[in-house]
Amino acid sequence: MTDKQQDLITEDTVEQESRDITATVGGILQAAREAKGLTIDDIAGRLHLRPSLVRDIEADKFDGISSATYARGYVRNYARIVGADVSEVMACLAQQVPSEAEPAMQSFSRKTTHQARDSRLMMVTWLIAIVLAALLVLWWVQKSTMSTGIDLSRPSAEEVAAAVELGATAAGEPVVDTAALADAPADMPADVMVEETAVPAAIEPTTDASSSNPPLSADKQPAEPSETATASTADAADASLKLSLSGDCWMKVTDATGKVLINGVKEAGRSITVNGTAPFNLVVGAPQVVTLQYNGENVSLADYPAGKVARFSLPLE
């Protein structure tokens, strides 16, 4: 081998190495495109890309491509269209755009997505818990308000009616006289002070015909029995009873003839006036809510305990 041939081989090797060092993806593709006589618009049309993106590839600008995977796909198809060496182009691309950065980026993006989803789920869970707690507090407040407004010391209309139907005797309630109740000491237990009152009818004294009393003179003779009975009946028929209610109350009122004047539950705010033959028999379920007048005079029911059924007769003796 002559010195001249050896020099030529050396120049070719240096030129090849120089080309390998300076070769880039953009330069290889641009040279191949121009050798084919194609324009940038022709390549953009075949790759279905914007012409500006093709110019970026030939200028080795890959920042405008969303991922390295897309960049490799565009470059591979570009090389096939212009007839460039695909292996050489892809090797240059591997040096210019490292592929190992992509999995790390995808992993970070996937992790960020999961964290964002978990955060939204946690926020929704806390929101539901707060709403349920607020509803529970609201329900409790409403329940407490409703319970506070109910007077538990007063029996309901149903309880009063049931107690009256059963009767004080069946329930084991003792019967006392009104006078005895009024004279009861202040320290007497409440369960002994029963409100039922039984006022015995007045007993007319009888006069024996054989009595030793001297006969009355003509001017001192008593009135005829028929006239006395008629007058007493007339006076009794004039009796009136007025009841005013500050609350719902079950009551029953009958007169001396057995006629039922009032019977049933009466609403708060009502004022009821009845006339009949005295004495009146009264059964009052809630005496603490009743204001009573007999023939225009007030009758106090303060001695009857709340929550007890009051039974008494009017007029009181």
Rank of each mutant, 00 (worst) to 15 (best):
S244E: 13
P205A: 12
H114F: 09
T230R: 15
R154Y: 02
A94H: 09
K143Q: 04
E227P: 03
Q115Y: 05
A168C: 05
R311M: 05
Q293C: 02
Y70H: 08
S156E: 11
A202D: 10
V25E: 00
Y294K: 07
V75M: 10
N295D: 15
S107E: 14
L301N: 07
A236K: 11
L282W: 02
A71E: 04
K36N: 03
A202N: 10
A209L: 14
G264I: 00
T206H: 08
V199K: 05
T257S: 15
P174R: 03
S212F: 06
A256W: 10
D85F: 02
I28N: 00
A184M: 14
D183R: 05
D3G: 08
C249E: 11
R55I: 08
P279Q: 00
V194R: 11
A71T: 15
G73F: 04
A162G: 04
A202M: 13
L93V: 01
A68W: 01
D183L: 13
A234E: 11
L121K: 15
A234M: 11
T13E: 08
F62G: 06
C92Y: 05
C92D: 07
S107D: 14
S153P: 01
Q221S: 07
P189H: 05
I21E: 10
S52L: 12
V284L: 14
S66I: 09
W140I: 15
L301R: 09
M188F: 09
